[in-house]
């Protein structure tokens, strides 16, 4: 399977092409977002319903990671 490079919070990672972005973040234990009271959150429903997996992708905020596949050069930012 082809390996590609994506950036998460400024760090480069090698991942399998087409792997699900929410799955990649969960495996690397990187919280997708902070809740409104500051809790770290990761994907829950895995099917685009709950919105917990929101991240910023290529400067576009609030994208659902669970509906996205990783592609080469993708820049992912999670709320610190």
């Amino acid at each position: 399977m082809k390996q590609i490079r994506i950036s998460i919070n400024g760090t480069e990672y090698q991942v399998t092409e087409h792997s699900n972005l929410a799955a990649v973040l969960m495996d690397k234990a990187i919280a997708n977002r902070r809740s409104v009271t500051g809790e770290p959150r990761m994907a829950v429903c895995g099917m685009g319903s709950c919105g917990e997996c929101r991240v910023t992708i290529n400067q576009q905020a609030h994208q659902l990671a669970c509906l996205l596949q990783c592609c080469d050069g993708m820049e992912v930012d999670c709320e610190p």
Partner: peptide
């Protein structure tokens, strides 16, 4: 239940199909 890695049952299934090891 809001802790990271508490997921849906179908949710975990979907993530695993999406190559979560």
């Amino acid at each position: 239940w809001t802790l990271p890695k508490v997921v849906g049952v179908g949710g975990l299934q979907a993530l695993v199909k999406g190559s979560l090891p």
